[in-house]
Amino acid sequence: MITRLSLGAVGLAGLAYGAWLLLGTGWSNIVAAVEWLAGGVLLHDGVVAPLSIVVAALALRVVPSSVRARVAAAAIVIGTTATQALPLFDRPGAKPDNPTLLPRDYVTGWLVIVALVVVVSAALVLLDRVRARRS
């Protein structure tokens, strides 16, 4: 109980300090930060999470049960790297005077990752079949 109380007290102190720091950044900065704080939650709870449920429901109908686990695993890796890659697709921070920033083609890069995941998953499915036949 002492662990929980002291951890909780540390947590409250951190929250209070963070709030105090944020309040010190000025009104327009606070408004912009709160917009992005709330926006991130809305984007996740309102778009990303429901989308994952819809995709999973559709996949349950079409994907045969023998390969479901491998397909789900591939979808998780592809989906999480997509979150990371999507904002880079258009290279929005790129500057004409600095070619060393965002030097890659990120669409191709992500597609290579997708292809690797698909190939590895397909190999695992084949391995599953071979094992199932032997046993």
């Binding site: 929980r4 951890l7 909780g8 540390v10 947590g11 929250l15």
Partner: peptide, 16 residues
Amino acid sequence: AVAWLAIGALALHVAV
């Protein structure tokens, strides 16, 4: 500032 909010809320969450 938000780093302190995050670490504070995280510690509180673990405590709960």
